[in-house]
Amino acid sequence: MIGSIPSSLTGGDHRHAVENDRFEAIWQNNRTGAGMFTSIGSTEATITVFLDDKPIQAREGETVAACLLRASVPYFRTTPVSGSARLPYCMIGLCFDCLIEIDGIGSRQACLSQVRHGMRLRTQEGAAAVAGEHLQ
């Protein structure tokens, strides 16, 4: 079994065996392309958002981050100093790696923003521009 937990560490506890079986099933699904994330709501994408002017199908009630991750977007932003690409990390609003421009407003947290039909998203390159200010 992949990722087996030795019984010497679990004390043979049945609960750990069940958790290990669940981990095994998730790992196997990832290998077969079923994906790491499982939808708990509707799986029908009924609305359209646009990332850098390209349409992406979205599900009512999901976050921008979940929608873009499901669409296999390679990155949401680049860092201002090194230009390295970033994707969501924590998905709870703490890390700020999911920043993206939403409807013309930069540095919005994709993990905390729900999709809306027709929403315009832009990959954020470096620091967000602030209206009326020039970044140096």
Rank of each mutant, 00 (worst) to 15 (best):
M1I: 00
M1L: 03
S4E: 04
S4I: 01
S4G: 06
S4V: 03
S8Y: 10
L9M: 10
T10R: 01
G11M: 12
G12F: 07
D13C: 10
R15K: 13
R15L: 08
H16T: 02
V18P: 03
V18F: 09
E19C: 06
D21V: 05
F23P: 00
E24M: 01
E24H: 05
Q28D: 00
N29S: 05
R31Y: 00
T32H: 11
T32A: 02
G33W: 02
A34S: 13
M36D: 13
F37Q: 14
S39P: 15
S39I: 09
S39H: 12
S39V: 13
I40Y: 12
S42M: 03
A45T: 13
T46A: 15
F50G: 04
L51P: 06
L51R: 02
D52F: 04
D52Q: 11
D53H: 13
I56A: 04
Q57E: 14
T63W: 03
T63S: 15
T63I: 02
V64H: 08
A65R: 13
C67G: 00
L68K: 12
L69F: 09
R70K: 14
R70L: 10
A71H: 10
V73L: 10
P74C: 06
Y75Q: 02
P80A: 06
V81I: 14
G83L: 07
S84V: 07
A85H: 15
R86H: 12
L87H: 08
Y89M: 10
Y89R: 09
C90S: 08
M91V: 00
I92Q: 10
L94R: 13
F96P: 01
F96E: 05
D97Y: 08
D97F: 05
D97K: 08
C98F: 05
L99E: 13
I100A: 03
E101K: 14
I102N: 12
I105G: 06
G106R: 07
G106P: 14
R108A: 10
Q109D: 07
L112W: 05
S113R: 15
S113F: 09
Q114K: 15
Q114F: 12
R116L: 07
R116A: 14
H117L: 03
H117A: 12
H117E: 10
G118D: 03
M119Q: 09
R122L: 01
Q124D: 03
Q124K: 09
A131C: 06
G132F: 12
E133Y: 09
Q136L: 11
